[in-house]
Design a protein around this nucleic acid. Structure first.
Ligand SMILES: [Mn+2]
Ligand SMILES: [Mn+2]
Ligand SMILES: [Zn+2]
Ligand SMILES: [Zn+2]
Lengths: 151, 151
DNA sequence: AACAGCGTGCAACTGAGTTGCAATATAAAT
DNA sequence: ATTTATATTGCAACTCAGTTGCACGCTGTT
């Protein structure tokens, strides 16, 4: 992300009422440099206040529905979330490591107009676009070192 | 797919020994018009012969490693598999329905050279590319009819 | 006070995919 | 053909992400 997005402003703009849990969860996600898993969010958030995982999942669903967050699936198991703010974090591709499951943002490639650029005229109009490159990341690839665990 | 791929030839080309289970699983996938889930494959294959789900997963892993199959994740839960044969089923984007989880192949858009076209110069070279459009499909969208179950 | 709406927590559940190990099949060696 | 090694399969038990049901608490309304 270029600069940090203000969680409160993002919620206000998207018509979502703030509250302590929502504030915290969005703050955790916004202050991460890459897309994060629910597990990561939960661990980070619990350093500040006690939150149940069900509450987290419900808030994540709400944020995705209200387009505050983008949700991405990968073969690595759990879903990942990132801020969807068009100004601070425009749509971009991701590199996913087959070994460790880590997901890197390719923020220098803008995908806002990817449908036009690739000339994709679909009958169903998409609400979101997800371009993922799969391979083995730097940490895992050279010399097939022990598969790097996610922090 | 343009025309059906011959499972035996595909395995031979990729250096995988055929056997009854592998033949059948690959045939099920090759004769489907869209990317399929393990559950679907298992149900279809069991009409012909008895196969354990663990065997299926192991064969799928083998096929993906040997680049006989492409594997794709979506928010809809289970992974989906399709034939990776470059001639008969070149790399293409997919449309995934948020309601029913169905995945449609956008076979008319070729992604073989997508990295060049989008000018993505990544340090980690990707072994696979997965472009997904997310939204609500025809069956689910108009009039918010009962969420269409996958066959 | 009574009621409704909303957000939360807890426990139990679901369903995809995995792991360990024994049993079987296939291929190679004697 | 009998033995030996190697690859493949099946079964049960397990892991782990995400979900469901329901009771409880809070806030505002009649
Ligand atoms: Mn990203
Ligand atoms: Mn496809
Ligand atoms: Zn890695
Ligand atoms: Zn649908």
């Amino acid at each position: 992300m270029k600069t940090l997005c203000d969680p409160r402003e993002l919620m206000a703009r998207q018509g979502v009422d703030p509250n302590p849990n929502r504030d915290l969860i969005l703050k955790v996600i916004a202050s991460s440099s890459k897309a994060v898993t629910p597990k990561f969010i939960l661990t980070a958030a619990r350093k500040t206040r006690s939150i149940d995982k069900v509450t987290l999942y419900r808030i994540l669903d709400l944020f995705v529905a209200r387009r505050i967050l983008r949700r991405m699936a990968s073969v690595a198991g759990s879903l990942r979330y990132e801020i969807a703010c068009a100004e601070h974090n425009p749509l971009h591709p991701h590199f996913v490591c087959r070994e460790c499951g880590d997901m890197e943002c390719l923020s220098d490639v803008d995908l806002s107009d990817v449908r036009e650029r690739l000339n994709m005229k679909t009958k169903n109009l998409p609400e979101d676009i997800d371009l993922k490159l799969e391979g083995v990341c730097q940490k895992c690839s050279p010399r097939k070192r022990r598969r790097h665990e996610e922090k």
